[in-house]
């Protein structure tokens, strides 16, 4: 029933109100004494060296790409799992073919070393 989704949005409003209200209250009561050294980015007490917008290892991008592949696959599995008893052996074979293709890809990325961290 579509109207069952309305309370989710109401709940979302209440959940959003919590951080907003606490931040407003906190702003009203807390002290505020800014100072140049206080507002420096944290770097163990020394003046920051270099920029924080540095380059980082390409591994993180690979993980992100792999995540997309496997998460989309998970989403495919959800409706299949719910309807599994109705689909019967036809559904089973279909999904096994899909998973087999996926496992081939999985073995390939493993062999390629995409899952190694260093």
């Amino acid at each position: 029933m579509p109207q069952n989704y309305i309370p989710i949005f109401l709940f979302m409003l209440v959940a959003l109100a919590i951080p907003v209200v606490t931040l407003v209250i906190a702003k009203a009561v807390r002290p505020d004494n800014p100072h140049a050294t206080k507002l420096m980015p944290y770097e163990c007490g020394i003046d920051p060296v270099d920029t924080a917008r540095a380059r980082y290892t390409v591994r993180f991008y690979i993980v992100a790409i792999l995540f997309v592949v496997f998460d989309v696959e998970t989403i495919f599995l959800f409706p299949w799992a719910v309807q599994f008893k109705m689909l019967g052996w036809f559904g089973f074979v279909e999904m096994m073919v899909f998973l087999a293709i996926l496992v081939v890809g999985y073995v390939w990325i493993w062999k390629k070393g995409a899952l190694e961290w260093v």
Binding site: R53, D71, L77
Partner: peptide
Amino acid sequence: SSNSKYSLLGSLRASAQMVSYEASLGL
């Protein structure tokens, strides 16, 4: 958005970790 080295590294690690385990969680 913190524009600090520790924050950036921490959030990269956290994001990579969260997305990596999300696949297994869903499965």
